[in-house]
Amino acid sequence: MKTDREDVVYMTQSGYAEFKSSVPLHSFTGESNNLTGMIDFHENVIDFYLDLNTLRTGIDRRDRDMFRTLDVDEHPFAEYTGELTSSFDHDSDEKQRVTAVGEFTMHGITRDLEVSGYLQKQGDQITLEAEWILNIKDYELEPPSILFVEVDEEMEIRIETELEPRSRDETLGGN
């Protein structure tokens, strides 16, 4: 894409998002390949969201319980919007550790969240990997029970995606 960097944002619509949850003696994973987001280095904006309806744990009844817990009809998205607090060298193809501060919103509740991860330039693309611990009680979600045993309120979140350069105007429109 022949545009100046100022006119470019890096975007994905098929990123991987995963949560790992556990009950005593057992853990399970929910996955989605519909993580959508962009990094705008010029404006220093990071913006990602996931349609929670696309998460799958491998057991449809468990998915249904998860959707009920998350109240996905009322609050369909988990969202993170923030900014990078560390620099990223576009001329390096090394994996670079970065930190972002911003707000994470789920279940209609917004909390400040600092996330560390890695960015790496790969040709035109940039890969992103990040993980953090989410306490679902912070978002006023009650841990569901499996046979009267409560699911751990802390979940490991991991995202991984390749971001492609896009024109800012096409991506953000009039924003």
């Binding site: 959508t36 962009m38 904006v45 969201y49 953000l172």
Partner: peptide
């Protein structure tokens, strides 16, 4: 902050 429009899958 410029955000992506939220769209359901």
């Amino acid at each position: 902050v410029a955000q992506l429009p939220r769209e359901r899958v």
